[in-house]
Design a protein around this nucleic acid. Structure first.
Lengths: 351, 351
DNA sequence: CAGGATCGTTTTAACGATCAAGCCGCAGCG
DNA sequence: CGCTGCGGCTTGATCGTTAAAACGATCCTG
């Protein structure tokens, strides 16, 4: 490990760093005044404030976080589980969620602590322990599904938490933030219908998971709204979230008479597979067949693939706002955010 | 946000949780004895220990982390930057690194704190601040390249750190852990050569980045060792780390006389593209053309693609060991770990 | 049997900050 | 003149824990 050089610019004293007492001595004021300068500058006369500020700068003073946390019993941290990378999907979505959370947290002076556990049960236990030991102020639950066993446990234990994912029973507490999956897919259908497409195929996930089901519902609802639902069950395909599966589903849809002129995929992985299938059939994506993916992963940009972007930054901000209320007096309601369709070449031109 | 119910099983007192003083009172001993029971049980008489233990269990006491951190000035945390998801690669590698780090940290009682910054410069500044404020004991630098400006800054500031990625100047301090990229690719070439392949193509990254260059060196060295280097520069292709680019490079190599019978790709993304190209040419992966990727991402398993697995768990353990030395008296040397080749169908059968 | 070593526990004192009074001087006001 | 109010600072207590010293009692040991 890299060791500290004997004498560096910012001076260390004895065993530890420079404390508020050192600053106080240097500026010839009391510790409390230094504290005030740091936290409530308007409470201190300008002249004194300047003197203290100079001392702070000269000594390179940085208030000790643990001491502050102890005294004011605010850890300045929130926790979230980091899940093992699943082989289900190629899309690095969890990554981006954590990044958004970290960024949103920092904006209000909170840091993000990660922990790794094997299952939901130990996740709940760990969350309880982290809050009980004062390590964090609250926790974030990722990918919450109906019937999830984590919320009730945390509720019972009195642990502040916010879910990413709808929780039906918690509607009044503002304890969840979600992105409207149905609306996202519906927006895609709207976009395609406006461009004149009448036969719009759907590449979805197998039934039985919240996200996939919501997206499928969005397709059905929007198709119905445009009067395109009749007979379109032929265009409803489902499969695992893999590239291969996407290619297969697309081939199945396109390789027949009366094939769809547009495809809606519920992930960029599926869409990437579909893209290849389209090309394999000698068709031009965006021209012969329109194609839209989901999640706006980096690959979507590379592939010039239209995709639905989830407002992750906003999700992070809301979560943090609920967990660590700043100025806003009112406790916010649970948020159902609208995703945004990013139109690229794969769906821009009329089929 | 979910609120604490009025009365839950684990009792809260007044404004806060149960403290060591409560336990002491309940067990009719001093606070210090309780502390000893928690930290040095052998120092306390068995009978007393039992009594204290009962009180701890009854009250559900959990020592306050901040207080402990303050008193013993060990934060129990390490920090690492979470990078924005790059559009360069589809592989969620950073994810897995963070997971490994979190897990390794927990094994020795350390938690992982994330922070988000825009560039390397502010990363260094943030690291310094985090350590100076006592928030973390040390930091981990991800993806360190030669000439990286972060190590010198941290060194100067006396911040304990460990790099993932070789740092030539720091060889004596054990300040880095790396995986031998050249050895990984060489192992692939060995594997293919043993299977009888003589013409082995290379799908690499453009020159100028450490990881890519190391892997290219590995190919050259191993080819040379097997006496296959002569004329094989025709088989050396380079391109961006995208699926499309991989497909194009593979097509370029395979679609001519005297084509390679095996391909080494330096990422699974490139390999996935190559896989498609192979199929497009009517060839059978693993039979007509052997193919091996790199990083053993989830997609490799799905695609039945041989790949080189980096020992991330071990990387995490070493990093943590250096940052937070446990029992081992000796400061470990910098670690250059060997990756492991995972053979799957794409390279199992003789071409 | 005095003097020291040992054991198990308590007491005291931090760790570095913030909170809540308290104090002092000066202005305003009856 | 004296009382109150207030800005500006200091003092003392405190958050919950642990390190280190103190302490009384018992046990050796020469």
């Amino acid at each position: 490990m890299a060791e500290a050089p004997a004498g560096s610019a910012a001076r260390r004293r004895g065993s530890g760093a420079v404390t508020i007492a050192d600053v106080a001595a240097a500026a010839a004021v009391s510790k409390q005044t230094v504290s005030n300068v740091m936290n409530y500058p308007e409470k201190v006369r300008a002249e004194t404030r300047e003197r203290v500020r100079r001392a702070v700068a000269e000594l390179g003073f940085q208030p000790n976080r643990m001491a502050r946390a102890l005294r004011s019993s605010t850890a300045g941290m929130i926790a979230c589980r980091i899940e093992p990378v699943s082989s289900r999907s190629l899309a690095p979505f969890h990554d981006r969620f954590l990044h958004a959370l970290a960024e949103a947290g920092q904006a209000v002076g909170r840091h993000l602590m990660l922990f790794a556990v094997d299952d939901a049960e130990s996740e709940a236990a760990t969350c309880v322990r982290l809050v009980r030991t004062g390590a964090v102020e609250g926790v974030v639950l990722y990918n919450v599904v109906p019937g999830d066993l984590r919320p009730p446990v945390l509720l019972e234990a009195g642990v502040p938490f916010v879910c990413f994912g709808r929780v039906p029973g918690l509607d009044d507490a503002g304890a969840w933030v979600d992105v409207d999956n149905a609306a996202g897919v519906a927006a895609v259908v709207d976009h395609l219908a406006e461009a004149g497409h009448r036969r719009i195929g759907f590449l979805g996930f197998p039934d039985g998971h919240r996200v996939g089901d919501d997206r499928a519902d969005g397709w059905v609802a929007a198709m119905d709204r445009h009067g395109l639902l009749a007979g379109s069950h032929r265009f409803d395909t489902r499969g695992e979230d893999t590239w291969t599966s996407g290619a297969k589903m697309a081939r199945g849809l396109l390789d027949r008479a009366g094939a769809p002129t547009a495809l809606v995929a519920v992930s960029d992985t599926l869409a990437a597979g579909a893209l290849q299938a389209i090309r394999d059939l000698g068709l031009a994506p965006g021209h012969d067949v329109a194609l839209v993916g989901y999640d706006d992963t980096p690959s979507a940009e590379v592939l010039d693939l239209s995709s639905v972007r989830q407002p992750l930054a906003e999700v992070g901000r809301r979560i943090v706002e609920v967990l660590c209320p700043t100025g806003g007096a009112t406790v916010p309601a649970p948020s159902l955010l609208r995703p945004e369709l990013v139109v690229r070449g794969s769906s821009r031109r009329r089929a």
